[in-house]
Design a protein around this nucleic acid. Sequence first.
DNA 1: CAAGCTCTGTTCATTTTTGAACAGATGGAG
DNA 2: CTCCATCTGTTCAAAAATGAACAGAGCTTG
Lengths: 307, 307
Amino acid sequence: MSRTQFTWDDLQFFLAVARSGQLSTAARQLRTSHVTVARRIDRLEFSLKVKLFERNPRGYVLTPIGHRFIETAEKVELEAERLQAEIAGGALIQRGVVRLSAPEGFANFFFAQILVDLAVKHPSISLELVTIQQIMALSRKEADLAVVLDPPKAGPYYFEPLTGYQLAIFATGDYLSRAGEPQRREDLLDHSFIGYIQDMIFAPGLDYLGDIHPRIRPSFQSSSIFSQLTATRNGLGLCVLPLFIAGQYPELRMVLPDVILDRQYWIVCHHDLLQVARVRAVMDFLRASVATHAQRFTTSDAHRAVR
Amino acid sequence: MSRTQFTWDDLQFFLAVARSGQLSTAARQLRTSHVTVARRIDRLEFSLKVKLFERNPRGYVLTPIGHRFIETAEKVELEAERLQAEIAGGALIQRGVVRLSAPEGFANFFFAQILVDLAVKHPSISLELVTIQQIMALSRKEADLAVVLDPPKAGPYYFEPLTGYQLAIFATGDYLSRAGEPQRREDLLDHSFIGYIQDMIFAPGLDYLGDIHPRIRPSFQSSSIFSQLTATRNGLGLCVLPLFIAGQYPELRMVLPDVILDRQYWIVCHHDLLQVARVRAVMDFLRASVATHAQRFTTSDAHRAVR
DNA sequence: CAAGCTCTGTTCATTTTTGAACAGATGGAG
DNA sequence: CTCCATCTGTTCAAAAATGAACAGAGCTTG
């Protein structure tokens, strides 16, 4: 762990000046002197070896680099504000809702469809469903309950396996009749592939193209499994999709049926929440629902699986 | 803009102590004295009025609140590191792809469907589609081109209107025959409503339930329009949906046809990228595609629109 | 058991940061 | 054109932060 080379707090000063364009306005907002604001900007620029503002007698004008800086600095600000909101929010507020976060596929293609059953079984529970896409990792504390691909390594969490699921390569019959049916993995290299944005894969479990063949390069990349599905259904090419999603679209055909990837969903929640009846109710509901629909997640003839 | 009430820089000290469990170890890592570290922790605790650590003679032990603090503090750290990487990384790298970001509805229900046309027309362009959900605001610098609901107020950006679109209230006939057909806005309060997660609405343009009636409270909330759509299609209740999405599902019926919300998509890119041919090509393609499909976005009898 | 090491906490001196006062430049109003 | 208000920049004093030295507690090793 090495300390970053600038004072994080100086970002507050940067943002205030960037927004107002003036030292004195920023100083009033920050309830400090304009001299302090100027010094903080100077220090930030010196630390980072960049010029963030052009100075003129009537104010500070952002440089192009300064412009680029704003959005990331605002992210820091947002997180700092979240920290405070979290403290102000106090302990776990007893709400009438359960917030469940889950990967996009599971949330949108399974859970959203069984939601009516939950509403019938537990009419007093108000559910907030947070869909997790490729490029984001929602903090676990922002959801009461999470379905994840990658359970926590440490921390005060309870976690258990929810269900295994499998993925395979799919395409439309239309695409295959045009482009030819692959017979071996090597054939895949001659095909148009659809996948996640390769340099934005942070979540373990989603970087599966390399498991199939090290040289697959998707020509269409999307952060959303639904975009990938839609592109596949429109005949753009081959795509690795979970069985429980592809199985809902009869026009999709499995390619190379021996290429099966295995993954696992886990339920995670904070230990403290195990005492909360509605959270347990949603957990029980999840367990029961995937058990009821188990055949959607894996093939019955699961030979030769690729991890 | 009010300054947050604690020194952001103290978060670095918090993280160092949280990770090592010891003042002296943290101090060595931070290249400062342990007294300074202790003082910074004390100041943070005082500012926020929380106790983050229990002190004992052999080290600092995180409190439950302290544990919760780590993940958000780590996000601040990550963003600060990104700031530095950004400075170190320098200018725009020339790549063979165009990365387009767009709101979930537009990306998944319109663009993904016309993607084959782009591939045919511009086979050398490799597209990365980043779908923007409710709870995230992807930095503009992370996409070459963006479709947004809210154009930038300032900065070196080029932006132009792409298309207007309308939203209306929808439900399945099945739901309506069970729950009754609303005749006036007041009737909506007696219905089950589906919408975005109210306390996670950061993006302007998505907080439209209040425009329809100030007292609508959704009983199912999701960060994904697709989840909302799926829940609606499964008969869970009423939902405000864009016409170009709902129009693809014949089982969805418009409720209170005079309640029409107008919104506008914009194309945004950095000025510098206007010189890049493949970016311009994707922009041209977008313009042409929405023009070709214009009737999907608005009703032809657009009377009494609510802004 | 004693000695040595490492931990946190306290005190005081030193260094750094901040703010008050002042100065010069610029723009707008009369 | 003059006057006033507001802007940024400079200087010096006051306040805050940091570090060095020391002390007490606890643990490990011989």
